[in-house]
Design a protein around this nucleic acid. Sequence first.
DNA 1: AGGAACTATAATAAATATTATTACAGTTAA
DNA 2: TTAACTGTAATAATATTTATTATAGTTCCT
Lengths: 147, 147
Amino acid sequence: MNSDFSLAVHSLTFLSLQLDQMATSHAIAESASVHPVRIRKILGLLRKQGFIVTKEGCGGGFILQKSPADIKLNEIYKITSEGALVPKCPPPNSECVVGANMKQAITSIFGDAENQLESFLSDYSIKDVASLVTHEPIEVAEALTGE
Amino acid sequence: MNSDFSLAVHSLTFLSLQLDQMATSHAIAESASVHPVRIRKILGLLRKQGFIVTKEGCGGGFILQKSPADIKLNEIYKITSEGALVPKCPPPNSECVVGANMKQAITSIFGDAENQLESFLSDYSIKDVASLVTHEPIEVAEALTGE
DNA sequence: AGGAACTATAATAAATATTATTACAGTTAA
DNA sequence: TTAACTGTAATAATATTTATTATAGTTCCT
């Protein structure tokens, strides 16, 4: 998988630790060791989905719009990377049953697998990631074991 | 994900439909619309794990060593693609808590996600894929719903 | 009003990953 | 002993990802 998902999570986590003021693409890009244009591109997607608010011009930047606990990783995955799980396949080959139908079989199996992945990711929020990152006690394990 | 997993599954499915005779890398490659050297490289991995047997020389090729129902997709995933699920991350940046620990956080979450994916894939065998591909009635749905 | 500090976005270039091809050594059957 | 194979390394071509450059627009400040 490419790093769009990681960068989206990174940016949101960064913003979650700075809820009171805007962060520039430059600051986030520096934190992620990546080019600011890329951050702006990815945050543009998150803005369109209402996760953050953008302000242009001097003193502008990005700020969270939702509570970190309410931003679940499955939502971010959907926005940045949906379909990334399904392996590439060579183009169908109608000369052979296997070649003709393999892509469809793989796509079908991994479509289900991706649904399951998304369900798994829905147990994690940006708040959880922020906790992981700042080494605070984690509440995710409980969520997963149903406690 | 690259196509190694798909090609491994493709090759094994091909072999499962031709249990009585060896198939050449040329024949499999043609079915998958891919270069024979690539098939030999991937099948080399499967041979080392005992899934198939290889014969060199004239009249040689590849033949299944295990029953199609006993080859589970999680095993193939492990061999060809383990780790492919975890998204790329920019290199850690020690200047920033988020940058310093994001890679580790992502890796940890997706390590668990990958375990879950492998467990999901363990419900599918090469026999199931062969059924999908040849449009025979599928037994997988039952396995998944626990019937 | 004008400049500095921002975002938005498109276009291009560079870097990286994937895949194909070539080459050659070794094996086996006929 | 030759044709038909696998095994594997090295190189080339292609595709994908990422960085960079460029330009236009917005906002704050003086």
